[in-house]
Simulated scan of single mutants.
Amino acid sequence: MFSFFNKTSINGSELQQKLTLNPEIIDVREKSEFQAGHIPGAKNIPLSKISAYSLKGDRPIYIICQSGLRSRQATKLLRKKGIQAFNVKGGMSRWSGTVRGGKL
């Protein structure tokens, strides 16, 4: 009834705690941004291509970008498709965990 009770986002610390479970992480930044530094194991699907994404299985996925704006858009789109997607608030700009591919 109230969207307040329907949690659709998590912060970077919450995502870090889930890394041992090998979660599906999708980085919706452009390829060059992704190559400059990303969470190990994340898949790069730019926001412009996210509508073609389909999930195999029924597990949550975590969507990240640089600041949280593009990932919020992607999360809304994927949720409309019935995918259990969660936006990572603050994006890579607030990520304090391991980064692969470069420095942020």
Score class of each variant (00 low, 15 high):
Ser3Trp: 12
Phe4Met: 13
Ser9Phe: 08
Ile10Arg: 11
Asn11His: 06
Ser13Cys: 00
Gln16Phe: 01
Gln16Tyr: 01
Gln17Thr: 12
Lys18Ser: 03
Leu19Cys: 08
Thr20Asn: 14
Thr20Val: 13
Leu21Gln: 15
Asn22Arg: 13
Glu30Thr: 06
Lys31Asp: 13
Glu33Gly: 01
Phe34Arg: 04
Gln35Ser: 12
Ala36Phe: 01
Gly37Lys: 07
Gly41Thr: 09
Ala42Asp: 05
Ala42Tyr: 04
Asn44Arg: 07
Ile45Gly: 07
Ile45Thr: 06
Leu47Met: 11
Ile50Glu: 02
Ile50Cys: 05
Ile50Gln: 03
Ser54Cys: 00
Leu55Pro: 01
Asp58Trp: 01
Arg59Trp: 00
Pro60Lys: 11
Ile63Ser: 02
Ile64Tyr: 03
Ile64Glu: 01
Cys65Ala: 04
Gln66Thr: 03
Gln66Asn: 12
Ser67His: 12
Arg72Val: 00
Gln73Ala: 07
Ala74Val: 02
Ala74Asp: 01
Thr75Gln: 14
Leu78Arg: 07
Leu78Thr: 09
Lys81Ala: 15
Gly82Trp: 09
Gly82Lys: 08
Gly82Ala: 09
Phe86Ala: 03
Phe86Cys: 04
Asn87Val: 05
Lys89Glu: 15
Gly90Pro: 10
Met92Phe: 06
Met92Trp: 02
Ser93Trp: 02
Arg94Ala: 10
Gly97Glu: 12
Gly97Ile: 10
Gly97Lys: 07
Val99Asp: 03
Val99Cys: 02
Gly102Tyr: 03
Leu104Tyr: 05
